[in-house]
Design a binder for these strands. Structure first.
Lengths: 245, 245
DNA sequence: CGATTTATTGAGAGGGGTCAAATAATGTGG
DNA sequence: CCACATTATTTGACCCCTCTCAATAAATCG
């Protein structure tokens, strides 16, 4: 089941059959959760680690007066937490954006796998660092990019991340976000997101319909977004750790 | 020398004398660097790990057209990299904001210490997760907070971080940032930062002079900033790992 | 097919940006 | 320690990108 996770990790290093088997063994207990539910609440300290197998979720923080900021998108193959081995309490919430299937992994089981499979340990370490790099790039977007550039950049990033886990088809990918959710991601209002989408459609850059995004001209979109994929570290940077065969 | 690092880590768990000794052993080779120099450039892949002993630096990303965003402040006791054990190339630059003294630690020496001192390993893991939490909070600031709230939040965060490493005196701390650098941190212009400072001074909240910040009313400043220190995870969350004595 | 969510569009307002110039602080060489 | 150059701060006037408010249209869903 954790095919997306495996596919993602293999952008870092090639796993052995035993590695893959171990990862499959982790996704034993699976839970289905509906749309717009909280998987984790701010302040929680869950006992197990959750891995999203299918569907989209997001990390978000809410200010006292109601303002909400989505701080990360959690796609299939992403962990919800993974931090709780060290930190006592979560400093943000995790909510579903679509119906989701999550594997609940006892932290002892995860630790055992990490001990016995150093290649997985390295790959998950890489995964953590890429997540941090994405967070930094979001800081750049919110701090420096205009509204149009932000939307374009988000679409480029999601397209690359989805392609990494095999969820694109040609120039098309799922995009189950509402305009309000895009706005909460980019620090904009839904009204202005709508206007930017209008503009991008008018320029023949994208088609967005029925929760699917088609990028008609990826190079042009990347130019507009000042998008540079380097921060996603997709160059198989752990190839020296590759498994044989 | 790495007193600030030790002081910071002890907000997570109490280290043993041997742990502290091992950390001191790491800071053998020290380099002095002037103000406004790059310690690391985007794309670099340094061989050793750098620890800031004194002075301030920042991580930053620059867009092709010159727009610059500071994505993190690197204070005494912070690592510049620490990632390079896994990632091949840096996705951002690190530059000094003041003259700086950095320890250059061979990655093999660091790995040895981590192997022999699991408590340090855990504490550095905590440190990494706190850095990620700070990055998320910056996403919230840039996405949702107004200019005034952003400046107030930054000052609260820096004050707490500096207090954590023993660099505050009462309600005062160093603040060597120029208004341009504050602006590049918060996604504002230096002109508008200046106006917000004017407003905060007028409200009797702060004094900022000769690169020192005095917070006259911390609770009020935190209210304005919607600041909640939870994300800094200062509650000695690793106390179950405490060394004896 | 009615009910609710989501997307779309318009008009008006404001927070923060841009441009420009003056003042103050800091640094440097003699 | 001063004269000068450089860097940093401060302030004003004007503008524009994005927000707010509001109303309508279109999807989506039981």
């Amino acid at each position: 089941m954790p095919d997306h996770l495996i596919r993602k990790l293999e952008h870092f290093t090639r796993l052995s059959a035993a590695d893959r088997l171990a990862l499959h063994g982790l996704a034993r207990s699976v839970r289905a959760v509906g749309r717009h539910q909280d998987l984790l609440r701010d302040g929680d300290s869950p006992r197990h680690v959750s891995l999203v197998l299918e569907g989209w979720a997001c990390r978000y923080k809410q200010l006292e007066d109601g303002r909400r900021q989505i701080v990360a998108h959690v796609l299939p193959g992403d962990f919800c937490d993974g931090y709780l081995l060290v930190l006592r309490a979560l400093d943000h919430a995790v909510g579903t954006l679509t119906p989701v299937r999550v594997a609940e992994i006892p932290s002892t089981a995860l630790m055992e796998v990490l001990d016995q499979h150093p290649r997985i340990m390295q790959a998950l370490w890489w995964e953590t660092l890429v997540a941090a790099a994405i967070q930094r790039e979001w800081t750049v977007s919110l701090g420096q990019r205009t509204a149009l550039e932000r939307v374009a950049h988000l679409f480029c990033e999601l397209f690359w991340r989805l392609r990494m886990i095999g969820l694109t088809e040609g120039d098309t990918c799922p995009l189950p976000l509402t305009q309000v959710e895009i706005a909460d991601t980019l620090g904009l209002t839904n009204v202005h997101v709508n206007r930017m989408l209008h503009q991008m459609r008018g320029a023949g850059l994208i088609v967005l319909k029925s929760k699917r995004l088609t990028i008609l001209d990826l190079p042009a979109l990347q130019d507009i977004a000042l998008f540079n994929a380097g921060y996603l570290h997709l160059g198989r940077e752990g190839s020296h750790l590759d498994a044989e065969g």
